[in-house]
Design a binder for these strands. Structure first.
Lengths: 337, 337
DNA sequence: GAGGAGAGGGCAATCGTTTGTCTGCAACAA
DNA sequence: TTGTTGCAGACAAACGATTGCCCTCTCCTC
C-alpha cells in the first residue's frame, strides 16, 4: 500500500518524530535534515494518513452538512458557498441529503457522529428535535443551523430576516401602484414560510390594503408547489394584479403555469419572488425578487461553526442577515389613480 | 469526550474483543453477554470511532467527488443521485467543487488522498491529466469519471451517448419540418460539446440540410453562454427557424435572450435543449430536450466504483448510456412543403 | 478417568500518527 | 576540570478500534 511515516523516516535516516516535525513545521529541524526528509517524502509519494492523524489529535477537519435536498436551487447555492468556505478554512465537507426522510436523517447523524466530524451544519425542514438532541446533544457535537432546522439553545442559528424581506417585496408592489395583491407560499409550519407570510401581512396592513382570503395560498416550496398554487389562484373568482411568491422555485412554477394559461407577466399579473436564485435573471420575464445573502449566510455559518469548535460555548446565538430587493422586470408599474 | 470501546467493555464486564464482536456481529457471543454489551453501549451513548476503525481496516467507506460546480443544474442532479447511491451502499460522499481552478483541484486531490477515501468520482472539465495520474496513479486510488474528466486506462468512464442524443434532437427538428437549423453549444475542446456538435452535423447531413456557418455558435456551457450565443445568433443576417442548444442551462439563457428581443418561442424560433434538467418543464414554453439518464449514470458510476474497490482491475472500461428525446412545447411543427 | 471436541471469550499486536520526555553533544563560563 | 545551557533529535506511549491465536470450561465417548 502507500508509504508511511516510518518509510520516510527510514529512507531519510531520521526518526518519525523528526519527519512529523518537518512536515508539520511544528519544531525547528536543521536545514540539512529537513531537506533529506522532504526529499524522501517526495520520492515515496508520501501522503500522511489523515485517519491516523485524526485518531491521535481527535479532530478530523471535516464538517457534515445535512440538507433536505440540493435540488432546491436555493439550497444548492448555499451548499456551494459553504463548501467554498470550508475549503478556505481547510475543512472538508460531507454532504448529506436527507430527502425529508427521518430515517435517512437519523442514519446520517449516526454516520457523522461515527466519522467524528468536527461539527454539523443543518439546513433542513424535516427534523426531529429529540433525534438531534439525542445524537448530538449527548456527545458535544457543535451544530449550527441555517435557514430551517432544529432549535434549542445548544445550537447557533443563522437566518435571514424573512419578515423584513417579505415586507420589502410587497412594499415594492404597493409602490408600483398595486392594491390587489395575492400571496403564494410554503407550508406555514415552516419558519421561513411563516415569516414571509407575516411580512406580507405586515406590509399589507401598513399600506391599508385588504387581505383577500382566496388570494392567500399555501402550497409546497418546490416548483410544482408554485405551479399548483398558481392554478388555484387563477381559479379564484377575481384576479389580483400582483402576487408575492414565497420563493423563486415556486415563482418559476407559478409563472410557467400562468403563462401557459394565457395570463401574461407582468402585463396582467406582476410577480415578485424570494431568494434570488442564480437563474432568476434568466426567467421570462427576469424576476424581481428578494435577495437572500447566501454568501454571507454561508460565511457566517462556517465562521460560527469554527468558533464553536475552537471554544465550545454554552448557549447558541442567533445571527440575522438582512435581505435586499432586486428589481428586474416582473412587476408592472400601475397608472396612478 | 465520548465513550470508547474500553468503557463499554468495562461496564459490561467483558473484553473489548467481545464488544467488538457483538457490535459487528462477527462471531457468536452468548445471548446474555450480548445483551449486557448492548445495554452498556446504550447507556454510554457509544458510537464506535470510524477513524480508529478505518486505521485498522484500511478502508474508510467514503468516496470523494470532484465536480466543476454544483451550481450547474445538470451536475447538481447527478451529484444528488450519486449521493443517494452512496448512501444506499453505505458510503459517505465528500463533495469537492473545483470551480474550474487547477489549484483547487490539486489541493482537493491531496486532501482526498490523505483522508484515504476509497475512491474518487470525477465530473469536471478542467483537469490536468498529469496531475491526476500523479496523485492517483502512484497510489492505487480507484477513480471513475462521469461525463467529462481525465482519460487514461487507469479509470472507468461512464458517459452518455451524446452524438446519438444530438442526432435525436435535430432529427426531431427535421421531422417537424425544420430546414434552417442552428447550433449553439459549448467549447468544442470539451468532449460532450464536441460529440453533440458531431451528432448535429451527422443528422444535418443525413437529412441533406445545409450547415450555415453563421448559425454555428460556440460559447460556454452556462446560462450566460446561452444568452450570449443567442445574441450572436440573432445578429446574423438571416434567422433559422430552429436551434439546437448544447445543454438546458444554455437553452434557458438563450430563450430568455430571444424572448427579451421579441422573438417568440416556438412561433418564430423553435428550440431543443439537452440534459432535461429538473426545471426544463417549467420554462416558458416547456422545453423539448434530450433526457440524459442521470439516475442510471450515477448508479453505474458508483457500482463501477465499488466493483473497482472490491477487486482492483487493470484497465478501465467505458460504459455508454443511451439518451432519450422528451417532447414538450418548444418546437413548432412547420407546414409541410 | 483420559482424551477430544466445541463453545465462549480474552490477550495483545497492530494500524500510522503525534508529542511529552529524555539524551548526547558542543560551547562556554567559572 | 566541572557545571550549565541550548540544540537537534530519538524513544515510546498513546489514540480506539480489529483480529489471529490461545485459553478454559463443559460435556461426551470409549
Amino acid at each position: 500500500m502507500s508509504a508511511t511515516i516510518k518509510d520516510v523516516a527510514l529512507l531519510a535516516g531520521v526518526s518519525t518524530t523528526t519527519v512529523s516535525h518537518v512536515l508539520n513545521k511544528t519544531r525547528f529541524v536543521a536545514p540539512a535534515t529537513r531537506e533529506r526528509v522532504l526529499k524522501a517524502a517526495n520520492e515515496l509519494h508520501y501522503a500522511p494518513s489523515a485517519v491516523a492523524r485524526s485518531l491521535k489529535v481527535k479532530t478530523t477537519k471535516s464538517l457534515g452538512m445535512l440538507v433536505t435536498t440540493t435540488l432546491n436551487p436555493f439550497f444548492a447555492e448555499v451548499v456551494k458557498e459553504v463548501e467554498r468556505q470550508c475549503y478556505q478554512q481547510g475543512y472538508t465537507l460531507v454532504l448529506c441529503n436527507t430527502d425529508g426522510e427521518l430515517e435517512k436523517t437519523n442514519a446520517y447523524l449516526m454516520m457523522l457522529a461515527q466519522k467524528r466530524v468536527d461539527g454539523i451544519l443543518v439546513m433542513c425542514s424535516e427534523y426531529d428535535d429529540s433525534l438531534f438532541s439525542a445524537v448530538i446533544g449527548k456527545r458535544d457535537l457543535p451544530m449550527v443551523v441555517m435557514d430551517w432546522g432544529p432549535s434549542g439553545d445548544y445550537v447557533d442559528r443563522i437566518q435571514d430576516n424573512s419578515v423584513k424581506g417579505a415586507h420589502l417585496a410587497v412594499q415594492h408592489l404597493v409602490e408600483q401602484g398595486h392594491e390587489a395583491i395575492a400571496y403564494i407560499g410554503g407550508p406555514l409550519e415552516k419558519l421561513p414560510a411563516r415569516q414571509r407570510y407575516d411580512g406580507f401581512l405586515e406590509a399589507m396592513h401598513e399600506a391599508g390594503l385588504p387581505v383577500v382570503p382566496e388570494w392567500i395560498i399555501e402550497s409546497n416550496f418546490e416548483f410544482e408547489g408554485g405551479k399548483l398554487g398558481m392554478r388555484r389562484l387563477l381559479a379564484s373568482p377575481a384576479l389580483p394584479s400582483a402576487v408575492f411568491i414565497g420563493n423563486d422555485a415556486m415563482a418559476m412554477g407559478a409563472m410557467s403555469e400562468a403563462q401557459l394559461s394565457g395570463v401574461s407577466i407582468p402585463e396582467t399579473l406582476s410577480v415578485v419572488g424570494y431568494d434570488n436564485c442564480f437563474y432568476s435573471a434568466y426567467l421570462t420575464p427576469p424576476l424581481t425578487t428578494i435577495d437572500q445573502p447566501k454568501r454571507r449566510l454561508a460565511e457566517q455559518a462556517v465562521a460560527s461553526m469554527i468558533e464553536r469548535i475552537d471554544n465550545p460555548r454554552q448557549n447558541g446565538r442567533l445571527i440575522m442577515l438582512e435581505p435586499d430587493l432586486v428589481i428586474r422586470s416582473s412587476v408592472k408599474t400601475m397608472a396612478r389613480c
